[in-house]
Nucleic acid binder design. Structure first.
Length: 540
RNA sequence: GGCGCUAUGGUGUAAUUGGUUAACACGCUGCCCUCUCAAGGCAGAGAGUACGGGUUCGAUCCCCGUUAGCGCUACCA
């Protein structure tokens, strides 16, 4: 097995135009403040001061950091999966963090929803979930330090002012980024505005020479010139940290070794690297994952149908095939075998197998994985899942899991062959679990039109009723003998029986159905005549 | 608009220190099996690797340009 650490240790660098490392320009003697009381005593390596002295050792620590502005979608699930697979494969730690600094859009319900979805997928976390909203003091503390070290500054420009400038620029066809109006505010002006109680944000004081270069584990070398990186906001006027401050500080405090996240963050990475530099810390490894798109090659969204993981759970998809399918979006195993159990996924996953191009989400293939999994799963495993579906339909009976358990397992084995989702057991298999079912029109049209049937079926029922035993073979030979005797094709009887017994045009082999239903139910349904009365309406 | 990234059948992905009939899976078509539908078996269609140049005996692979798509360009994350 290839060693996933084979590709060497990439370190990003920031260089001036002259080529010397930017850290050489950093002001000497600047120290971080003593850390606040640790709000996360669970962290083994979270001491912001000390871990720098102890590089190398930590091992793999990765994280998934969704923001609770919506429920977990397939893109997020794939990101979580890859982090989890990497951690599990490396014997590392998988940490869950909730980025809820956007007060407007975040909600506790969504946090629960995301946790639920992750649990369902089987992606268990080792630490967390940690909420950024509980670390506010820490962000402010570090932001203050940054300001005092002249690596950030307070900006009094109002959003209106900025919007106006941006407007003006775009009106004349030019791009605009923050002009640094407050960057070198004279002390007296600063004091004056401060005294007036003007709201302000904290902006990062970026350098304007050289370029930021980093080696992405997946995309390779990525370079940005620093001049195109504006002085981004670190702390909003309401005191809440922005994403950039949040991620960097959290990844530092949580001692994250590999940042594995969506490629939509590639362009943010240089900003964050600058921040790491300003904080005088080493930078984690970055691995950006290609994005998942809808069938029209635009970013997956609601109008592409289901994007929330919970929707798939509700529709009867299973976590294992779901993860298997997700893993194949952007990653491929070394071998040609695509159907992998979660354990095999862990064993085979490597960042080296991840490609760079965006992938289109194909529900058909997901469905194939799901049906394949269902077909091969032992009935015992499926029973609890099916129970949920039957309960939802009001079809569940206690005996199914007690006195009739053996029978139930047999029925599951029968039905699982041609099912695509768990919910199909309750719909396609309804007639096995209750006598209250309808004969679908399609079955009527296909199988019940022959005029001889109203006479034949009750007679067949009588024949079956008198059978000494009601096993597969007895039933089959009885039906075939009856067909021969009446000089009709066995298929005519078989298909009519299918419609009468299951209500469906599609069902398992008819003799298996009869054996599973048992003599009484089989005879009753075949001899019943109610189907003659409800003719389907004309035109249907 | 600026900046960044990407580009192999319809979809997901393989492939070669540059040399293969460009491979596998989903989907699709036909046949077999057969009591329906799946499954399974067999056979097939579908890309000449976005386009245009270059380097080379030879390019999907290296270089340049173009195009397209996506991402970033917020006091969202």
């Amino acid at each position: 097995m290839p060693n996933p650490f084979d590709f060497g240790r990439f370190r990003p660098s920031v260089r001036t135009a002259g080529g010397e490392p930017l850290s050489a320009l950093a002001r000497p003697g600047v120290r971080l403040p003593a850390t606040l009381p640790n709000r996360f005593p669970e962290f083994a390596h979270s001491d912001f001061q000390s871990f720098k002295e102890d590089p190398g050792v930590p091992g793999v620590r990765v994280r998934f950091a969704p923001s609770p502005t919506g429920s977990l979608h397939v893109g997020g699930a794939r990101t979580a999966l890859f982090n989890w697979l990497f951690a599990r494969g490396q014997g590392g730690r998988f940490i869950l963090r909730i980025e809820d600094t956007d007060r407007e859009r975040s909600s506790p319900e969504m946090v629960e929803d995301i946790l639920d979805a992750l649990r369902w997928l089987g992606l268990d976390w080792d630490e967390g979930p940690f909420l950024q909203s509980e670390r506010l003091d820490r962000y402010r503390q570090v932001a203050d330090w940054l300001v005092s070290a002249n690596k950030a500054y307070r900006c009094f420009c109002s959003t209106d002012e900025l919007a106006a400038k941006r407007q003006a620029a775009s009106a004349s066809g030019k791009s605009w980024k923050y002009d640094g109006a407050c960057r070198e505010l004279p002390p007296d002006q600063f004091r004056a505005r401060h005294a007036r109680g003007l709201p302000s944000v904290v902006r990062f004081k970026g350098t304007r020479v050289g370029e930021v270069v980093f080696e992405d584990r997946i995309f390779g070398r990525i370079a940005h010139r620093t001049e195109q990186i504006e002085d981004f906001v670190l702390v909003r006027s309401d005191g809440m940290p922005t994403y950039h401050l949040g991620v960097v500080l959290d990844d530092l405090d949580m001692n994250i070794s590999h940042v594995i996240r969506g490629a939509d963050h590639i362009s943010n990475t240089p900003k964050q690297i600058l921040l790491y530099q300003a904080l005088e810390r080493t930078v984690p490894d970055f691995a950006h994952l290609p994005l998942i798109l809808g069938s029209d090659r635009t970013r997956l969204s609601k109008r592409h149908g289901a994007t929330a993981v919970t929707t798939y759970r509700e529709q009867g998809y299973l976590p294992d095939p779901f993860c298997n399918f997700l893993a194949l979006l952007g990653w491929s195993p070394k071998t040609e075998v695509e159907s992998l159990s979660t354990d095999e996924l862990i064993r085979q996953f490597s960042l080296k197998g991840v490609n760079k191009s965006n992938a289109v989400f194909d529900p058909e293939k997901l469905s194939w994985f799901n049906s394949r999994y269902l077909r091969n799963a032992p009935a015992e495993r499926l029973l609890p899942l099916i129970r949920v579906e039957l309960e939802r339909e009001g079809l569940w009976k206690g005996e199914f899991d007690s006195s009739d358990r053996a029978w139930m397992l047999k029925v599951i084995d029968l039905l699982k062959q041609r099912v695509r989702m768990v919910s199909d057991f309750a719909t396609q298999g309804r007639a096995f679990f209750t006598d209250d079912f309808e004969i679908e029109d399609k079955a009527r049209r296909k199988f019940l039109k022959n005029e001889a049937l109203p006479l034949l079926m009750p007679e067949l029922a009588a024949r079956l009723e008198s059978l000494p035993a009601f096993g597969l073979e007895e039933v089959e030979s009885a039906l075939r003998a009856f067909a021969a005797e009446k000089e009709v094709k066995a298929g005519l009887l078989i298909n009519a029986a299918r419609a009468l017994l299951t209500g469906k045009a599609v069902a398992p082999g008819i003799f298996e159905v009869m054996a599973a239903l048992g003599r009484d139910r089989t005879v009753a349904r075949l001899s019943g005549t109610s189907w003659l009365e409800n003719e389907p309406r004309a035109g249907e």
